[in-house]
């Protein structure tokens, strides 16, 4: 009888139109933020109903950051974009002119309401003894990372490794390049997004160590029980600042600027920061940072500006067509 009820309700819901919302927003985001924004969206909807007395429905789309940016450029009508790195949003501004090129200044902290970093996820007991970046280039160690061409997380991974090598070899670009080349020799497969790489490591059991967003690593522990995996914190890593932005052309066309702005502001609010911390993103606000301090391991972090002179330079040198990555990684070699 229970099954029949479920079936009937589903059948009706199948053909009933969605309950009518007063306004809808589309948030085009990167791969690992699914759980974060599920929580944020529900909370924001409640908040907006209470304050503006309007019913807002937030649709989400997730995928590799580069790929999502490409979709927005091709016409995916995002009211807001919450991507993995500033360069991807720069592309949307430059190529499609959907928002101004100085977008990053419009919100606090370089438009990044939370930060993250890159850590290692290994199997319980750490059988290959991976402690730091050096261990990743040892023969017989299989490293899982997504594809820097499509995934934001993958680019952070790559730059973190390069940054480590620069530090180790006294800023010698040549030796850093050798290091990263050796690392990619140990990579058996490239997924298109961070979540795909996590699934490859966790569910399909491939690889010895996963280079992951810190929040991804924590989430994997939570989903699968810490009995199966461990987080290994490297000696140094990169400060990842995934930014958010309003897409001006879209919100003006759809008349959703007010809601979209409020949505992004919400991410900086106490509740928003709390949700971020709860989902293993390092919050910016003092209050939330203090609350979740114990959760996050202490790390030596460098920024992309310090080591690479910013995203535009880094993208051009390493990830553009014909850049360093194209020369380093030739599958099958």
């Amino acid at each position: 009888m229970k099954y029949l009820n479920i079936a009937l309700v589903s059948l009706v819901a199948l053909f009933a139109a969605n309950a009518h919302a007063d306004v809808t927003l589309l948030n085009v985001s990167y791969d690992p933020t699914r759980e974060l924004y599920q929580e944020v969206n529900a909370a924001f909807a409640r908040h907006w109903q209470a304050t503006a007395r309007e019913k807002v429905s937030i649709r989400a789309s997730h995928g590799g950051s580069g790929r999502q940016a490409r979709s927005v450029i091709d016409g995916l009508e995002a009211d807001v974009v919450t991507l993995a790195l500033a360069y991807d949003i720069d592309e949307i501004a430059d190529r499609a002119r959907l928002l101004p090129t100085d977008w990053q200044k419009r919100l606090p902290n370089n438009s990044s309401p939370y930060t993250s970093t890159i850590v290692f996820l290994v199997r319980k007991g750490n059988p290959k003894g991976v402690r730091d970046w050096d261990d990743l280039i040892k023969p017989g160690v299989s490293v899982i990372t997504p594809n820097p061409k499509t995934s934001g997380g993958a680019r952070w991974n790559y730059l973190a490794a390069w940054g480590y090598a620069l530090r180790k070899y006294g800023n010698d670009e040549g030796r850093a390049r050798n290091f990263v080349t050796a690392l990619f020799h140990n990579v058996p497969v490239l997924d298109s997004g961070a979540r795909g790489a996590t699934t490859t490591f966790v569910e399909r059991g491939q690889g010895d160590v996963l280079l992951a967003w810190e929040n991804e690593a924590f989430l994997a522990l939570k989903e699968f029980g810490s009995g199966k995996f461990e987080i290994v914190v490297p000696s140094v890593s990169i400060l990842a600042e995934p930014p958010v932005a309003i897409v001006d052309r879209v919100v003006d066309k759809r008349g959703t600027r007010k809601v979209a702005q409020a949505y992004l502001d919400y991410l900086y609010s106490d509740e928003g920061q709390d949700i971020a911390g709860r989902n293993f993103y390092r919050p910016r606000s003092q209050k939330a940072a203090a609350k979740y301090a114990k959760q996050f391991p202490k790390l030596n972090l460098f920024t992309i500006e310090e080591v690479f002179g910013g995203w535009t330079k880094a993208q051009k040198t390493h990830f553009a067509d014909g850049g360093v990555f194209d020369h380093i990684y030739q599958p099958g070699k």
Partner: peptide, 8 residues
């Protein structure tokens, strides 16, 4: 999508 959310 479900697969990628660990919803096997």
């Amino acid at each position: 999508i479900l697969y990628n959310e660990y919803n096997y």
